[in-house]
């Protein structure tokens, strides 16, 4: 072992890594935002008393959650065009991650929904609120407080999954790191720096979620 560390080459391409990180964050933000909307709708389906809503919601979660995300990414980029759906690399990946995160978030939200006591809904009904008003004013705010701790770790997980976009040559952080690796042969340095960027970003994300948690905590 005579490998001596030399970060100079990596620092010269550091801008490239930062651009990659910015794209990673963008991908994650768009996908998780869409995933939250999907997850919320599906979660209400999962806890619905109507079989016609519960079954399709359950099927969606089962299929998506039990398929490796890399398979989903490759499927939507390579197989969908064969079926006539042609999307750009980035659109294809965001769509895939949104659908994937929707399934995970649906399960997270479902857990939060069943933890809201039924008396909350009844109290809302008793003062004349409609089911939709009860959802927006009472159930969803309480559900969100229930799920914040697990929501944070799910979001971190989903952010790291953006690295799989490298498989279809989306120029995010992992893709850029691999490029620098190939161009400079600084294998160890490149991947150490890329890892540090992931760790730093995820730690920030976690701190942010904890701040939200504190902010929304119900005083007692």
């Amino acid at each position: 072992m005579t490998y001596s560390l030399n970060f100079a080459a990596v620092w010269r391409s550091f801008d490239l890594l930062l651009e990659g990180l910015a794209l990673s964050l963008g991908l994650a933000f768009a996908a998780i935002l869409a995933g939250c909307v999907i997850g919320l709708i599906v979660a209400f389906g999962l806890v619905s008393r109507t079989v016609a809503l519960r079954k399709p919601a359950g099927l969606y979660v089962t299929i998506i959650r039990n398929t490796p995300i890399l398979v989903l990414v490759l499927f939507s980029y390579f197989a969908l065009p064969e079926l006539g759906v042609r999307l750009g690399k980035i659109e294809s990946f965001v769509l895939t991650l949104a659908i994937y995160s929707g399934a995970y978030l649906a399960e997270v939200f479902r857990g939060g929904l069943i933890a809201v006591p039924p008396g909350q809904r009844e109290a809302g009904l008793a003062i004349g609120l409609t089911e939709m008003q009860i959802r927006t004013s009472i159930i969803i705010p309480l559900m969100l407080r229930n799920v914040l701790p697990s929501l944070g770790s799910t979001m971190i997980s989903l952010f790291k999954d953006t690295s799989l976009a490298a498989a279809i040559a989306v120029p995010e952080l992992t893709f850029e790191a691999r490029k620098i690796n190939v161009e400079t042969f600084r294998v160890i340095e490149t991947w150490i720096v890329a890892s540090c960027l992931y760790v730093a970003t995820c730690s920030l994300l976690a701190a942010l979620m904890r701040a939200v948690e504190r902010r929304l905590a119900v005083p007692r």
Binding site: P117, G119, Q120, E122, A123, S137, I138, P141, L142, R145, L216, V218
Partner: peptide, 8 residues
């Protein structure tokens, strides 16, 4: 019986 106030 259980009050059911909105805790938030």
């Amino acid at each position: 019986q259980q009050f059911n106030l909105f805790p938030h």
